[in-house]
Design a protein around this nucleic acid. Sequence first.
DNA 1: CTGAAAGCGCTAACAA
DNA 2: TTGTTAGCGCTTTCAG
Lengths: 334, 334
Amino acid sequence: MANVSIKDVAREAGVSIATVSRVFNKQGTVKRANKIRVEAVIKKLKFRPNVSAQRLAARHNNAVGLVIPRYSDIFHSFYALQILQGVGLAVERLKLDLLLHITNGNTFLNVSAVEGVIFSDIIGNEEQVDNVLQMDCPCVIMNYLTKDLPVSCVAIDNVNAARKATEYLIKLGHKRIATITGELKSQVAIDRLDGYIETLEKNKIEKKNNYVKYGDFGRDSAIRATKELIKLKTPPTAIFAASDEMAVGATQVAFESGINVPRGLSIIGFDDNPLALNFSPVSITTMRQPLHKMAMVATETLYDLITKKAKGNKKIILPCELIERNSCASPANR
Amino acid sequence: MANVSIKDVAREAGVSIATVSRVFNKQGTVKRANKIRVEAVIKKLKFRPNVSAQRLAARHNNAVGLVIPRYSDIFHSFYALQILQGVGLAVERLKLDLLLHITNGNTFLNVSAVEGVIFSDIIGNEEQVDNVLQMDCPCVIMNYLTKDLPVSCVAIDNVNAARKATEYLIKLGHKRIATITGELKSQVAIDRLDGYIETLEKNKIEKKNNYVKYGDFGRDSAIRATKELIKLKTPPTAIFAASDEMAVGATQVAFESGINVPRGLSIIGFDDNPLALNFSPVSITTMRQPLHKMAMVATETLYDLITKKAKGNKKIILPCELIERNSCASPANR
DNA sequence: CTGAAAGCGCTAACAA
DNA sequence: TTGTTAGCGCTTTCAG
């Protein structure tokens, strides 16, 4: 592999390795003629600096790690891909290398390969964060807001997004609004539920316990929940689902039960998963999370940390956006 | 960051750095007592070897690069994610680091950071392959079979898969079978078309030119194509679409035109994109590509190359699998 | 079984 | 403007 070293270039060009280094890194001053000669040799010999040596000598390596917890269902996969793309984009712009780490949480993260690490989420791998922090390694966490740890976090404003979703339903004229929550072990799900409850209270709509169904972000849980919901004596006229996957499940049940969406039942999801758009014959109204943006902001935040442009304890919260499609309407029996 | 070095450990344990190295890497022989002492110090000081130094000294770095061409539509994204997961899995099992490179094809790939590279596909970045090869860097290409270059390739048997799809339709009793091709600049699309044509011939079914519609893997192209198809005086009773995205588009058009799928029109897709499963009210029959497997095989192939267990010019072809769902049936007017 | 020492290829003082 | 040199932290002979 990369077998021509800086020495070879120096010899061939008749200068010292220091000069070659200077030319290559465009710093320091080099006589014009020498510079041209060295550049020619570099090109001729196809010299590429050995990254490990550079890193060792310069004590920094220009690489960041991205940790993605391992999970496989489509909902999370969509999430992971969006994150990856966002980070990938930012990293390229900032001329950073990206070391990817898909992990089940137990594996050790050797921080000396990178200058900083981004956690795409925290799911059973809090320990890794501790590790990284203890090594004094710059670090930012996405999608998980922690007040306890002195880490920078970039997350979505789930409470407010849920509020907006519920309010949208209320504005449409709904009063019987149910929700299907996500897995309540996750902060995200709790926040979305909170936003829903808050909004009901604020609008003086009684919160009925049997309108709150506990799901897990997955379709099956929503199918079960929706079946129960439509069997109620006074079934809801609208459902706020904490994920598009679940919104799709709910829509499916409605169809199968001969309930028209949105005329008989309005359904709003969360994520802006392409799934929600493609689901036919209605496309599902949803809250879009700026995942791309979150990933880019996280990367930039890390970059600032690494380059000492900023200190390490920012909490950044990004807003969601309502995407109106055609799974919501005013209730028929208003 | 990782500031405790092998020297610190050596001093603290009262041995030389060579001994520490031996203990840490579990090679060579060390007196039991020393070993235990060193291990204790390593733990106490939380010593983690500096990766760059290891790489520099050992002249290898245990990392592989994964190059993913940049594209953004859902079809390819699904592909990219599957590949990523597969490679991620394999890489973890093989204790390799993964350096991710999402590229538009122009960026330079510095090979000294890795021991080998995997191209997840070749789309406008043939030059990078040349680069890597010229550096004598082990390399495997996915989803693209090249006979010219001395590289290992892992790809899908698209011809045969298309054959199986078409045959399935024929067995169902169809004689009027149309196809919507993918972007014919790609080998994949050509192969799928070839498989279709071959099978028609083999079964003595006349190939009608107006049954072959040129698409680009995207939904819109399929919508256009399907509209033309159903307007024909003798419209097809079945369509083989070269992607699920297109199968979905075709199904959509059928619905909107009041054509029942599968009774009035059978549609088979390609990919096993979750899209095809979720598309309601029919879920779409498709050819599943073993993308995960392809990625894993590619990674293992690269590993063998790196570890010199194998030489560099294998061409591996993986079969597809028919996933029967409910978008295909015998033609109504048999 | 262990330590000394020679690099790995590069960067960054420092001196010239 | 340049070259010399001292590391960076580790692996790996090679003597002991």
